[in-house]
Design a protein around this nucleic acid. Structure first.
Length: 229
DNA sequence: GCGACAG
DNA sequence: ATCTTGTCGC
């Protein structure tokens, strides 16, 4: 699929933050009217030795069950360090390399990270949503910013994630007796719809299936390509 | 200055 | 994120 080059990636810490502050005004946190027939999950795996990392995207139909219709991967080198709040400057380039190979454009995409639950409202999911111009959802395994109350131990229960007097996401229980996941709208969706989509793509695991499958895919890719070097 | 801090 | 086997619990 094609996408917009909104800015350069070879930037420093200060410029990266400037870019985030500019892009946040372009976000649309409303449910888009388009139909949601397909959903995608994306993830990145790292090689501890080298600076190589591996990205993957998998597209599924969104019905009673998920049916995989396409997958794409990419391998590259990390060119930006991991800095909390600047994750997209590290992972977006390699993720885009994988998205670029996709023939089927998913109607909504799940990312392993935050959406607007971010210091400048521009987590990985929001940043990717703007570039791809698609509805996106952030689904993180831990919190970056915001406060929340304990979540009832029942599937589907959630409490709001508040940051600077604003609801930026939710701590959502996708599985009993496991820690909640942190959901936040990325782009072209609101929190309520984001939660609905995540619950609809979650089965017997804590992590929604599209992301879980993408995670398995990139880990397999890393281990296989590691044997050849 | 101290503590927090997606992957 | 990554390094890693068994093991406790639903």
């Amino acid at each position: 699929m094609k996408f917009n080059k909104l800015h350069a990636w070879n930037v420093d810490y200060k410029k990266a933050i400037q870019i985030q502050q500019t892009l946040r005004d372009l976000l649309i946190i409303k449910k888009s009217s388009g139909k949601i027939d397909t959903i995608a999950g994306a993830d990145v795996s790292y090689d501890k030795q080298s600076d190589y990392f591996f990205a993957g995207v998998i597209v599924f139909t969104l019905n009673k069950y998920l049916e995989q219709i396409e997958e794409a991967t990419a391998i590259g080198k990390a060119r930006f360090p991991y800095i909390p709040g600047l994750l997209s400057f590290r992972e977006a380039p390699i993720l885009l390399k994988a998205f670029r190979k996709l023939k089927n454009e998913p109607d909504i995409i799940l990312f392993d990270g935050q959406g607007i639950a971010h210091p400048r409202h521009l987590g990985l999911a929001s940043h990717m949503g703007l570039i791809l111009d698609k509805p996106t959802i952030g689904c993180a395994k831990s919190r970056l910013v915001g406060e929340y109350s304990p979540v009832e131990n029942a599937v589907g229960s959630y409490t709001k994630l508040l940051y600077k007097n604003e609801v930026v996401g939710a701590a959502l229980r996708t599985k009993i007796n496991t820690k909640p996941v942190f959901i936040s709208p990325g782009h072209k969706t609101n929190l309520a719809f984001a939660i609905r989509i995540v619950m609809a793509s979650c089965y017997r695991y804590r992590i929604p299936e599209p992301i879980r499958q993408a995670h398995l895919l990139v880990n397999k890719l890393r281990k296989e390509s590691h044997l050849q070097k």
